[in-house]
Design a protein around this nucleic acid. Sequence first.
DNA 1: ATAGATGCAAATTGTTTGCGGAACT
DNA 2: AGTTCCGCAAACAATTTGCATCTAT
Lengths: 137, 137
Amino acid sequence: MIASIAERCIDKGLKMTGPRKVIAKALSQSDDHPNADTLFQRVQALDASVSLATVYRTLKLFEERDIIAKLDFGDGRSRFEQAPREHHDHLIDVQTGEVIEFQNDKIEQLQKEIATELGYELTDHRLELFGRKIEGK
Amino acid sequence: MIASIAERCIDKGLKMTGPRKVIAKALSQSDDHPNADTLFQRVQALDASVSLATVYRTLKLFEERDIIAKLDFGDGRSRFEQAPREHHDHLIDVQTGEVIEFQNDKIEQLQKEIATELGYELTDHRLELFGRKIEGK
DNA sequence: ATAGATGCAAATTGTTTGCGGAACT
DNA sequence: AGTTCCGCAAACAATTTGCATCTAT
């Protein structure tokens, strides 16, 4: 296990207020990729007094501090996950919406090479695969 | 050159109305990746009577019919391009916002393999690289 | 003739913000 | 005490939609 979100907040000098603790906890307990609204519901289950505005503000804050990562699966809302311990990309099941994380060094390497060839230093990237489950698998 | 957008619309049995012709033309003339609003301005330059709502409706229609592709570079608005003659991905210059298209068979192949390994048939994917121009290149 | 398209304005959706009060250091 | 944070409601930006009216087929 890695440093909890709460610990990482403290490391970065953020005030750990009640709402932030709750949001950090809700994030820690999520091993999927909730959007703001879904996360808000989970937060509310822990403490109904926390507002949606604070969820948004806190998500933005955490993201700026690289405590969490903001994702975009093309459905118009942002999704969030704990700042990945290890970098990974996502495969989205087009039928169920299920999200599978994967990691592949070859593809990471290849991306770097492509950027270099084009005269760029790769600063970031986004890769999402969309697929249909193969029967019998 | 490939079939024009207008031709592809007719192929697919779409009514070619005035506004659609104008939007198709504006798209054809764009070799960048305009968002809806930018495209709307280009459309207006050709025919000021076309409304933004129609631009949105038509973009959605064209996209559903695979006549154009909708892209997302993470700035909160969708961007569009003619359905690519050849598939390609994008590298976005983080400093200028410039978008460079590239194509790389190895990475395409690798993505398919990854999906297969995970038990999926790849139906689509999205890859965006973000980079900083290397000095002197 | 008729199904489908359009313009306009109003509605939705996801997200951000101004403000007065509350909380952490 | 002072700065930062919070909840609430209002504000925003991008996109969609209801409706009465046109238009391509």
